[in-house]
């Protein structure tokens, strides 16, 4: 199995692949990481650079073909699962980390101990509304912690604001939308937000830092985590420095 970390986790949010690899080790799963991991093509597809996307996708397909592919990013997941067959005519055997984690928990290969503080869960658009994966991440979390749902959840979940290239072209707009989503999270009373997409995490954290000074916003202590990081907490393990 290839663990395809995805650009944002690989280069910026390194705590996500660190936590994920630690979990893979604990569960004794054989995996490899590509030496020169490429781009899934999502960013190019969503911003209209279709021909460039196809080139990049062809290249990446050569790296992953015939293998099972594990991804941390909801964007990678949708692109491999939907766009590769549709645009390249090539199927990729892809699973999202949430799928793997749930399998491991179900089979008893890992065991998480109860975490008493409740968390809230944010549905990434690419995983939830676009791919219909609402329950698997929730099953992982619910097996050892209580979820406090936001008013808008599952198919009605409010977007974090990062998608469709908006974060790069219109950062203020993107940040403002993230603030609204953080507001939803704060309203649940949870102090921890778990999600399954590095882009969501990145954007929500940016908003958290930008708006920390605002009087009408008290989310300073909202801990924003990837599912892998939260699972590792449940296993009472930490990533060694």
């Amino acid at each position: 199995m290839i663990y395809f970390r995805g650009c944002l986790s690989r280069e910026k949010l390194k705590e996500i692949p660190q936590a994920t690899e630690k979990l893979l080790e604990i569960a004794n799963i054989n995996y490899k990481i590509l030496e020169n991991e490429g781009c899934c093509g999502s960013v190019l597809l969503r911003t209209g650079f279709v021909e460039d996307a196809l080139e990049v996708m062809q290249e990446t397909y050569q790296d992953v073909k015939g293998e099972k592919v594990l991804v941390s990013c909801a964007g990678c997941y949708m692109t491999f699962k939907e766009d590769y067959p549709e645009l390249l005519g090539k199927k990729v055997d892809v699973i999202h980390t949430s799928h793997l984690f749930w399998e491991l928990l179900k089979k008893g290969k890992i065991e998480a101990s109860q975490i008493t503080e409740p968390v809230t869960y944010h549905d990434p658009c690419h995983l939830g509304r676009h791919m219909g994966e609402y329950e698997t991440p929730r099953q992982v979390i619910s097996s050892y912690a209580k979820i406090l749902e936001m008013d808008s959840n599952r198919e009605n979940s409010r977007c974090c604001g990062a998608g469709g290239g908006v974060r790069s072209a219109f950062p203020d707009l993107s940040c403002e939308i993230a603030r609204l989503r953080l507001d939803d999270a704060v309203n649940t009373g949870a102090k921890r937000l778990v999600t399954c997409c590095p882009f969501c995490i990145h954007n929500l954290k940016t908003a958290q830092n930008s708006f920390r000074i605002r009087e009408d916003f008290q989310d300073d202590d909202m801990d924003i985590l990837d599912l892998s990081q939260f699972l590792l907490l449940g296993l009472n393990k930490e990533v060694e420095p």
Partner: peptide, 17 residues
């Protein structure tokens, strides 16, 4: 297209990221 997306496109083409 937006200039930001063009820049990102060029970066991806050059460095796969």
């Amino acid at each position: 297209y937006t200039q930001e997306h063009l820049k990102i496109k060029n970066t991806i083409k050059k460095s796969r990221s």
